[in-house]
Design a protein around this nucleic acid. Structure first.
Lengths: 357, 357
DNA sequence: CTGTTAGCGCGTTCAT
DNA sequence: ATGAACGCGCTAACAG
């Protein structure tokens, strides 16, 4: 910057003014400065700016994993909104480990980021009460925290699951299984609760929670569920991983779907409609969830609000009825029923653009 | 930091020394400093450190999209390696637009990041020749740049495609179509070239490149390909998007696979083995690609090397033969043939861990 | 072993 | 309309 000033024959301050678009610079000098900038390929040092201004124009996003399409799409949405605001995004993964998450949030504090969107890993989240975080805007996604101070974006997991399970019950199924991962996860608890509710209201007995982290495990679980005296006749996958494992198992075991076992899952798969049979799912508005979280965050950042009670946005789910549940819709069209919105409906429902490679 | 120093009754310099683990501090004072740090919840300001030390311990990753599992998995790998080195990752998307990419790279220069992994969007990449980038380590992924200065990680797109198409030819197919996106993309060009080679060597005539960006477009393309006088009997999808569109079309048009049309694709789908029929694909070592790129980058960063000719790593592909090509493998096992490695084989083949939600 | 000085690049404050 | 001085928080280089 000193170089630019010298070349333009002005003081550093004038250069600074030109860069910030301050009005109090004569056109002629501004021009000279601009020329000097081009000539020297000068790029202002954002680090120094941040140090000075105490805000880094950076937010952090912490997700468990990035190769999960749900998280990746959320991250994409957040990144897109951030770009619109001229912010950069530091993205890190917690690998679903609490300690990693803590280390990363600490690092973000040291980096003086302006805010954070986080999908909390299971574990004690009291650490966020520390005064260290009191000056940092935080929004949670997918899983809320106990502390009411933080904004959060959610879907109604239990209601969505209930809806799907009731649909299966409507097909006459009485013994329905629930496959999930990590019982300690908020979403899993809520979805299993929805499953139980649906079963109990129909006078049926809920099956125990079936843990299923790998395809092999799913094969075992499904085999056991079918080999017993009163075999299950329907299975619900609690998220896209579980559902994929479930499909794998049904395939390996050569189970007829939906004849022998009906199936549905939470989370739409991008290939759900080319599967045989086409998969019935509870669909989340993934992109909109990320978008809503980012909007909440930037609202706080721009207004510098640190409320004692954050907002909670609950986005609507949709039951996409295809064939795996036993329905015989025609091959072309998706039947779908919307779940009534639970709360402040948000998000302009921007379609995710197509991608290439 | 001044507060910490005062509380500990020492100078700021001593605090700094304690933080950097410098040996020249007596245990007793170090202890007092540590106590003060804890008491005040002091977190060093990385911004100031970076300003001072001229390196930000941050790398940037620029991918076209994040909701593409290929890119997301690469990003995950890079992020994981970065974390091991204590680096943060600023992740941004170019949305496959050259201008966006340029703006983002410029921003990264201003942020004084230490290096960058980039999957270049199509367009004129001469801008990277600018002196501005001469002090920034750059590695490309998936698509190389003309400038030989940058390290790059690739697969042998043409050989992989050739292998798959030859396999289809081996099944007796003579009229095979190729569906791709964005012809201007490096990968698409290379894959189409491989397809043409395979066709020509077998004395067959290569079909024109079929552009296919949406499921609807695929339906049209496939319908046309089947309605003509000499209908195609096999179709190859040039990446996971195209392949999914292709599957959609075949499904909608109720085409018998592989009876009426055999199919194969580039990129493994995570549900490829539960599709009916199970999909034959050319599999890329996605995670390893990202990992290799990150390793190259950190090697340069740590050694501060700015070579005039970068390294190029070509990772091996694998033809995963399932059923959609016409093979009748048993349902449980994957037959697979490895493509001989083309160049410096790398990467410890770390399995991608499982994920939950 | 510890403190002092200076400067990383910028923007705010106050003069001019 | 422009410039000089100071400080954001930290550390390298020198004292002592």
């Amino acid at each position: 910057m000193a170089d630019v000033a010298r070349l333009a024959g002005v003081g550093k301050m004038t250069v600074s003014r030109v860069l910030s678009g301050s009005a109090n610079v004569s056109d002629s000098t501004a021009d000279r400065v601009h020329r000097a900038i081009r000539l020297l390929n000068y790029q202002p040092n954002e680090l120094a700016r941040s140090l000075r201004s105490l805000h880094s124009k950076t937010i952090a996003v912490i997700v468990p994993y990035l190769y999960d399409s749900f998280f990746a799409t959320c991250a994409h949405a957040i990144s897109t909104v951030a770009k619109q605001h001229g912010y950069s995004v530091i993205l890190t993964t917690s690998d679903e480990e609490h300690e990693t998450e803590r280390r990363q949030t600490d690092l973000m504090v040291r980096r003086r980021i302006d805010g954070m969107v986080i999908i909390p890993a299971p574990g004690d989240d009291k650490y966020l009460q520390s005064e260290v975080y009191s000056r940092m805007h935080i929004v949670t996604l997918d899983r809320p925290l106990a502390d009411p101070r933080f904004d959060s974006v959610l879907v109604n997991n239990s209601a969505g699951t209930k809806m799907a399970v009731e649909h299966l019950i409507g097909h006459g199924h009485r013994r329905i299984g629930f496959l999930g991962v990590g019982r300690e996860l908020y979403t899993m608890k809520a979805r299993y609760a929805g499953y139980r509710q649906a079963m109990m209201r129909a006078g049926l007995t809920a099956e125990p929670y079936m843990e299923c982290h790998t395809p092999e495990q799913a094969v075992k679980q499904v085999r056991a569920a079918l080999d017993r005296e009163a075999p299950l006749t329907a299975l619900f996958g609690a998220n896209n991983l579980t559902t994929r494992c479930l499909l794998h198992a049904l395939n390996v075991l050569q189970v007829d779907v939906p004849g022998q076992v009906a199936t549905a899952g939470f989370d739409d798969l991008d290939v759900a409609d080319v599967l045989q049979p086409r998969l019935t799912v509870v669909r989340q508005p993934v992109y909109q969830i990320g978008e809503a979280a980012a909007n909440l965050l930037f609202r706080r950042i721009l207004r510098q609000e640190f409320p004692s009670t954050g907002r909670r946005i609950v986005l609507p789910l949709e039951l996409v009825i295809r064939c795996s549940c036993g329905c015989h819709t025609n091959n072309g069209l998706d039947g779908s029923r919307k779940l009534p919105e639970m709360s402040g409906g948000n998000s302009p429902a921007a379609g995710v653009p197509r991608r290439h490679r």
